[in-house]
Design a protein around this nucleic acid. Structure first.
Length: 735
DNA sequence: CGGGTGACTTAGAAAAGAAATC
DNA sequence: GATTTCTTTTCTAAGTCACCCG
């Protein structure tokens, strides 16, 4: 863990580009309608019946054990009161009351039908790809310098790799071609080995001592473990924060024996330096391990993945996403989290609920232990769960993103977003009308929706005050988060947003809005104090209820998905040309991706070494340019000579020099493109949107159209996750 | 209707691994 | 080969949203 002094965790990264406004303020372009190979509308078919939730058959099978874990009864004490900011106080200058009519919709999907062909699949190694791609990749691999090997060996390796790939491809469960299950049922058979527990803590060696007030103190096992958690984090900024220290110390003292508790009263008198040093040495030692030692560890890890990392779901072997129980440690909340530093307790099998098929083998608990409960609930997708002690929320063991269960849901998500495309115009007209509503609640709803649509804000559920960092989304915006400017920088009706959103990432944006919106915002702010809610008549439940009445399956987050995907599609169209060279095409793709990331405010801390590596790249460019200049003069020289004498030898020399110039130019161009890309990306994270918001079919189709190999866009696990899209998408796909 | 849950998606940081460079 | 740098994977926190219950 220890990362040397983290300077400012950059929670306050600014939203770049006020101007770059990547708005996806579109909806248009119904363009040539979809043309996918199969079923352009999963979701459509799937939703229909109401989700009737089969009664939970808690345990059965006789095997079930139901025991209250003694020391871990978190659930109840957590989750205090919801943040409620003086809704009543907020005055509404409009008559009429909230009330909105909504038609309750219901969502439901029914996953695929009876499974077919079984087949364990190779767990990871080697890209899985579609036939065509294989060729290219092989070429690339051949190009790498692994000199040692003989031709045959290389060939051999190539062949096996190919074979593995093909096998994997063969074995892939093409669930998207199967029929779906009836509503609510997620699986019919589920078997797994249960979660993998972290190793027990072992007492520290005697030469690693803890000092209190300058004197050696031998800690009990429990307090030693917790002390080590803290010591390990000493290089981290966290340990300097008052809240963190306080929470840690309080929880640590709970773990102490009574004598220890009596003695250790002040964290500042604690000296963890030897524990810290030991930890650093361990990390160092790990790094310096020999190849062989590393290999041994790697194999052991693979072994556990092999054992715990997969489950059998409807006759298919599926990868589990997180099969390990989270180890104990100190809670690291993001932003100014009131609970940072608290002790996250060790989870015992007695705290864990196992979910599996009723005819399946029940996973064996670790020796000497029992599960909290065994249940057989096939309306949920989790394999195991436990309640976490910090917030009292439930944690789950679930499948990997490349699984059917996740993939099908993902697909459905994009289908819902595509349905929004067909009715977004009318919805926009609708809420524009509502700007003038007589009812305050409806006006607020309309303005909130406008923000969600235009700015891709999150819904903004209310949160429990004091339980989490103070962050907001659209519905929970407070007056203090916005500033209105009748005109600013040559624009009229500008609203300035400045608030912390999910993960305490700052959202800062100045947006010109419609006059009616502007007037409404001013109205909503009237007679309120800064800490009052802007939308005092609105919450996410109200908003979503309304949305679902406009379109089946519509919720606030669908707008984010929709706007993200449509923006990608538009930007790609705008930015890329068939005639571009490959690196330019890629740059265009990244720029389109970036436009979306900016829209969704996906930020990252600039890499620690960003400036350095940027400088390096610039230096390389300069060097290359010099080389280019040289090559150019040489070329000219040769040409001159050629003119003078013009024999065949010089002729070829000229050709050669010309080639050299071209090559240099190409490289310079490529590096410059790369530099641009990197600079523009400094504090923008592309991954999140790529993984969660952009319909992969748009990217697949683009690759086909632009003749760009798919693996330039998606790495192995991304291709795995989007296998359904890769398989079904043709070049003419339109979102 | 509102609070409380439960289940599931989305998120950035950190760790691990691979590739490039010294 | 060691070290640095870039990429991928892992980890788990923090959201969204539906449902249940009183």
């Amino acid at each position: 863990m220890g990362r040397e002094d983290e300077e400012t965790k950059v929670r306050t990264k600014r939203r770049l580009t006020d101007e770059e406004e990547a708005k996806g303020d579109a909806a248009q372009k119904s363009a040539n309608m979809r043309k996918e190979k199969r079923s352009s509308d999963v979701a459509g078919e799937r939703r229909s019946s109401k989700k009737e939730r089969p009664v939970k058959q808690t345990s059965s099978n006789g095997v079930s054990v139901k025991e209250e874990p003694e020391d871990q009864d978190f659930t109840s004490e957590k989750r205090g009161l919801k943040r409620k900011r003086s809704k009543e106080e907020a005055s509404s200058s409009l008559p009429g009351q909230t009330t909105r009519k909504k038609k309750s919709k219901s969502k439901s999907r029914e996953p695929g039908g009876e499974a077919s062909a079984t087949a364990p699949k190779d767990k990871n190694r080697g890209p899985v790809k579609v036939k065509k791609e294989v060729k290219r990749e092989v070429k690339e691999e051949g190009g790498t310098k692994k000199v040692k090997k003989t031709k045959e060996q290389i060939d051999e390796a190539r062949r096996t790799k190919l074979k593995i790939k093909e096998e994997e491809e063969q074995n892939r469960w093409r669930w998207w071609e199967e029929a779906k299950y009836e509503s609510g049922v997620k699986w019919k058979f589920l078997e797994h080995k249960g979660p993998c527990f972290p190793p027990e803590f072992e007492s520290l060696p005697d030469n690693v001592r803890f000092y209190y007030n300058g004197k050696v103190v031998k800690l009990s096992l429990a307090s030693e473990e917790v002390a080590l958690f803290f010591a390990q984090m000493l290089d981290h900024d966290y340990t300097t924060k008052a809240v963190f220290r306080e929470n840690f110390f309080k929880d640590w003292r709970k773990e102490m024996s009574s004598e220890e508790r009596l003695l250790i009263q002040d964290l500042n008198k604690c000296d963890f330096s030897e524990l810290h040093a030991m930890h650093k040495a361990k990390v160092e030692a790990r790094k310096n391990m020999s190849k062989e030692e590393k290999l041994v560890i790697k194999e052991a890890n693979q072994q556990t993945v092999e054992e715990y990392g997969f489950c059998l779901l409807d006759h298919h072997r599926e990868r589990i996403g997180n099969f390990k129980i989270e180890p104990p440690g100190l809670f690291r909340g993001r932003g100014e989290h009131p609970k940072q530093g608290m002790l996250k307790k060790r989870i015992q099998p007695e705290h864990v609920i196992i979910n599996c098929g009723s005819e399946s083998k029940i996973p064996a608990p670790p020796p000497g232990h029992r599960w909290k409960e065994i249940r057989h609930d096939n309306t949920v997708t989790w394999l195991a769960s436990w309640t976490e002690n910090i917030q009292g929320s439930i944690k789950y063991i679930m499948l990997n993103a490349n699984s059917k269960l996740k993939g099908e849901k993902d697909w459905e998500k994009y289908e819902v977003a595509r349905r929004l495309k067909t009715c977004v115009d009318s919805i926009r007209r609708h809420y524009t009308q509502d700007f003038k509503s007589k009812q305050m609640g409806i006006r607020q709803r309309a303005v909130a929706l406008y923000f969600i649509d235009k700015l891709a804000l999150r819904a903004g559920n209310e949160k429990e005050e004091g339980e989490t960092a103070d962050t907001v989304g659209c519905c929970s915006l407070r007056v203090e988060h916005i500033t209105v400017h009748p005109n600013l920088d040559a624009s009229d009706f500008v609203v300035e947003f400045d608030f912390l959103g999910k993960d305490s990432i700052r959202y800062y944006n100045k947006v010109p809005v419609e006059k009616k919106v502007f007037k409404n915002v001013i109205l909503f702010m009237e007679n309120k104090s800064p800490s009052d809610e802007l939308f005092d008549r609105l919450n996410t439940a109200v908003l979503n209820k309304h949305l679902s009445s406009l379109m089946d399956g519509l919720t606030a987050k669908v707008f984010r998905t929709f706007n993200a995907s449509i923006t990608l599609q538009e930007q790609l169209k705008k930015l890329s040309n068939m005639s571009d060279n490959p690196s330019e095409k890629l740059l265009s793709y990244n720029r389109a991706n970036r436009a979306v990331a900016i829209l969704c405010n996906h930020q990252r801390a600039p890499p620690k070494t960003f400036d350095q590596s940027m400088a390096n790249l610039q230096a390389k460019i300069v060097a290359r340019k010099e080389q280019l200049a040289l090559a150019k003069t040489e070329f000219k020289q040769a040409k001159k000579e050629n003119k003078a004498k013009g024999d065949a030898k010089i002729q070829t020399l000229v050709e050669r020099k010309k080639k050299a110039v071209e090559r240099c130019e190409e490289q310079v161009l490529k590096m410059e493109v790369q530099a641009t890309d990197r600079e523009e990306n400094k504090q923008i994270a592309l991954g999140t949107s790529k993984l969660n918001y952009l319909d992969p079919r748009i990217s697949v189709a683009w690759c086909k159209n632009m003749d760009v190999p798919l693996d330039k866009i998606y790495n192995k696990s991304q291709r795995d996750k989007f296998a359904w899209a890769i398989d079904m998408t043709e070049a003419d796909f339109v979102f």
